[in-house]
Design a protein around this nucleic acid. Structure first.
Lengths: 198, 198
DNA sequence: GGATAGATTTACCATCCGGTTGGTCAACTG
DNA sequence: CAGTTGACCAACCGGATGGTAAATCTATCC
């Protein structure tokens, strides 16, 4: 099998590492654990990724790509802004219920784990979080231009606050092992948007 | 110095560990680092706290106590509910600006660090988070009973969502190294409460 | 002054972790 | 067939970590 990079192994490593990093965090997962779970020896894992950080960054990009797909799908099949926001929170609540309130948001978890002490990871996390804020702001902005919201509505501020609300609710849900906070958050977000509708 | 527990040393350990745990997380701080920063040897630290976990739990209680004092002080000097919520977010924003958007909320950080894999810590974090939710809900409830809010206002739901919003905003602020998300969150919280005011 | 008990330190241990070394084996290429 | 290359692995290394053992030091009480 010379001359061709083993793409199947790389993909398997990425998927495995993503799963482990998601459920336990970056620092709590050793390269040996990733290797074992992916069915190979640690030294071979280092053959594919020259350092743990390079693997972490690759997993982040991999995860962001699949998250972007999910977002695009929701955006494509949503017709009114309030229903769209509502659906985002409902999907998040469903995921939390299904996972018995563990996991939460991969990027939110990494944000807190790496924000003060792992600058490369923090930058990448911030980059993706920023991108999603901009995406949501643009979505709201389009509706704002049609006159859907009152004039003083600020799409960027609303987008930033709604994503904060979602991340915070997932944090609360995870910590208290109850999906209730996500429901409360949905209620707040929807009530706000209803109130500022024209 | 026999026959009397050395309370001064215990307090110094608690303060030092709190500072280190706050800025770097639980797992990233070694017992040796705590001991050094507190001006003693590691083995002596184990003389005061028989395990790392016992120290962590003690620091959590210590931190919760000082946080409760801060909350009580804010509650005592606040007269209208919207102004009170506004002030909570403004104080959080000021803290973030002062710390160059590092640190955030000690309990929020620990929630994500320990929720999936450190049950004793998770329980204590959840316990304190729950207590603050109840405290805020009672605060809103008192005003609700005076007719300040419209009838459909749900103090517990609002309290849970507002704290989620605050935690999420601190997470965003920390990850993006900008205090802006906290301002956006304040805007959302205040706008919601204004909208549901009677 | 001697016994007592907490306080402090030095030295140590087992384990784990990221990463390296040195090498085997099979497949492809010229 | 000879040489090259990618995939894979056992063994190892240096450093850090949580935790322990045992000795010493020091203040107090009788």
């Amino acid at each position: 099998m010379a001359r061709t990079a083993n793409l199947e192994a790389r993909q398997r490593i990425l998927d495995t590492a993503h799963r482990l990093f998601y459920t336990s965090g970056l620092n709590a997962v050793s390269m040996d654990a990733v290797a074992s779970a992916a069915g190979m020896k640690k030294a071979n894992l280092f053959h594919y990724y020259p350092s743990k950080e390079s693997l972490e960054l690759a997993v982040l990009d991999h995860a962001a790509a699949s998250m972007n797909e999910r977002i695009a799908r929701v955006a494509r099949t949503t017709f009114d802004p309030i229903g769209g926001i509502q659906r985002i929170f409902e999907e998040a609540a469903a995921v939390m219920r299904q996972s018995h309130c563990s996991g939460g948001c991969f990027f939110g978890n990494l944000a807190l784990e790496s924000a003060d002490g792992n600058e490369p990871i923090r930058r990448k996390v911030a980059e993706h979080l920023q991108a999603w804020t901009t995406l949501l702001a643009a979505f709201l902005e389009r509706w704002h231009r049609t006159g859907y919201f009152r004039e003083e509505f600020q799409p960027h501020v609303a987008a930033q606050a709604i994503l904060s609300l979602l991340e915070g609710a997932l944090l609360f849900s995870k910590a208290s092992k109850s999906p209730e906070p996500v429901d409360s958050a949905k209620h707040l977000a929807v009530a706000y948007l209803e109130a500022i509708r024209a």
